[in-house]
Design a protein around this nucleic acid. Structure first.
Lengths: 341, 341
DNA sequence: ATAAAAAATTTACGCGCGTAAAATAATTTG
DNA sequence: CAAATTATTTTACGCGCGTAAATTTTTTAT
């Protein structure tokens, strides 16, 4: 009995004692068939390890059970972590997540969306490249495919936006830094890929104004996603030329901070809160690696779990029929105090 | 003309002035049709943005153009980087790469392979979990799907193995450490997930014997893939209890070294080659982050490019018909001297 | 027990494309 | 220029499943 190779659903219908249309129903929603029928099917499934042909299944379906997850750069541990988390939530809900990375490239992002469109996904969780994204392309895509934007928002595109509250991020950590030492200057890329960077700069300026301190922004050159190296080189420049106006540096993001820490090390500058330290450095993001820098990096962390949960659930409810007006959810970050500031 | 929505290949055949079977040939191998025909097709493609239905295409194909890329953990920057590189090579050859992560979990690895099997991929590039892999499952999968194993080898499974020469890695860096200071002791996980770890330990023992030094292996507790934390906690223990027999520590891999560096920092121990430093630390892997530790980590790096190129090309030639006997390629690493040792 | 409702089955068709065979057209060769 | 070769078109069938409509069986309610 178990030796017979099942070639298609018809054959499997025979050995399981259930009709093919019923099987079709079962595979698309196991709960939709009577319990006794389900038991019969699952017993046969044990004995014959049959799996429906994915391609034939999806051919005649308007929408598949696929969910696309697109991030700008999968080699960035932050995106890798959030993608991992989203992936798990999709699986838990019975969807088939498929991972894509734009590799920091506009053309690639466009191509990924084209590929995705032809995959007829039930929905897409998209973290756009940001500044480099092809806006009109994104809009057209979102018009055809239920798309939730996360991480960095681009106008009012898609079903909704879920990300972190960058204003809260920066104002919160600026507040912390002001209360515990010299007010910070702000270290950032001149032309950041991610629009969140602008929010963070603005929020820094606002916060400093509130506290009555003079803001200082140090913008360093450098394009692309090799952010640690940009931070390191820019850090060297700024340190040598004395552009840091106070002993406290708030970086626009953790990767920049990591590069700056390396620059400090290379110049023999001690970072931290200890008595022999001359400079404090803080980041923003709660990058997976920030725990292991030397000194461990004080940062304000995304609420990874909440972002991923909100994003996934918002998409799921939209897919399952509940149409809501466009909405932006921005979650607060949590300050992680470590030795660097 | 450009306004007409093309619904299928038949309609597209009409507007392009080419027969449907010829179109079918074109989409499966553009070079296989005459140039003038190709020009006509591509002109129509410009005007009508038609894309063949992926599902219908693959349904009747024994083998698709899909290539599966499976890594144990996509959140590990090493795997993320190698996956990125492989992905690009697949695209360049006209394949459709699909990324999967086992998330460090055996059951997940099995499931990924099941999913992959039903995707009828042309081939698979698989970095197994290692010790935790389901061997019999892997074998069965490799019997059905052209699979190239990379990173960590598991018997003589699949088409071939491509990875790094762990013996050369460890003996080379051990040699370097011996020549430049005290001979190293070896810092590792007691129960590593990756079989390469055993080769590295053995190679360390061999190398020390050759040089006539007494080897010391410090094996720390800890399961799973949270390797930096294991290194940090194990590092604290070992430092406090004086288990490091020399001032030089060779770590089994970079992530462990990164954790150890943090432990050193937290105990106020200076790492490096400078006069005020009391300990040297080296890693192995050339982890993307190793450049940015403090001090920057001396390590022996995988030849990422060569590994990915050899792996991809070996798979491609196998797919395209050339059947070769199983073969193991182990590429040498390059010593990267930095400040930590 | 009977009627009403729900679930499963039967029947039948179509999706968009792959692909094979035979016929035809275009190109190259001598 | 005719013959040989190569490329394209025509014709025709099938893949494995979704899905709709009509029918039968089973379950639940009265």
């Amino acid at each position: 009995m178990a030796g017979i190779k099942i070639r298609n659903m018809d054959e499997f219908a025979r050995v399981s004692g259930v009709s093919r249309p019923t099987l079709s129903k079962y595979f698309n929603a196991p709960e939709s068939v009577r319990e006794r029928t389900r038991t019969k099917i699952e017993a046969a499934l044990e004995a014959h390890d049959y799996r429906p042909n994915i391609y034939a299944m999806n051919q005649n379906r308007k929408l598949t059970k696929t969910i696309g997850i697109v991030v700008p750069l999968l080699t960035d541990p932050y995106f890798a972590e959030i993608a991992r988390s989203l992936e798990q939530r999709c699986v838990a809900e019975g969807y088939r997540p498929t991972l894509f990375s734009s590799h920091g490239d506009t053309a690639m992002e466009v191509e990924v969306l084209e590929t995705l469109r032809s995959l007829k996904p039930a929905g897409v969780l998209l973290a756009p490249l940001g500044r480099a994204s092809n806006l009109r392309g994104l809009e057209k895509f979102c018009a055809d495919v239920p798309t939730l934007i996360f991480d960095s928002s681009v106008d009012q595109i898609g079903l909704a936006f879920v990300g972190s509250d960058n204003f809260q991020f920066t104002s919160h950590i600026t507040d912390y830094l002001c209360r515990t030492g010299e007010p910070p200057c702000f270290f950032e890329m001149k032309t950041p890929a991610n629009p969140n960077a602008h929010r963070r700069r603005q929020s820094y300026l606002d916060a400093m104004k509130v506290y009555g301190f003079e803001p200082h922004v140090i913008s360093v050159e450098g394009e692309g996603w090799d952010i640690e190296e940009i931070g390191r080189l820019g850090g060297h420049d700024a340190l040598k030329s004395g552009r840091f106006s106070t002993n406290t540096i708030l970086c626009s993001n953790d990767r920049l901070a990591i590069g700056l820490l390396t620059a400090c090390y290379e110049q023999g500058i001690h970072v931290g809160r200890g008595p022999e330290c001359t400079i404090r450095v803080a980041g923003q993001d709660g990058h997976p690696h920030s725990r292991y820098t030397c000194p461990p990096l004080t940062t304000i962390s995304h609420d990874y779990d909440a972002v991923s949960q909100t994003a996934a659930e918002t998409l799921f409810t939209a897919i399952e029929g509940t149409v809501k007006p466009w909405e932006s959810t921005r979650l607060e970050g949590k300050l992680i105090m470590r030795d660097s500031a």
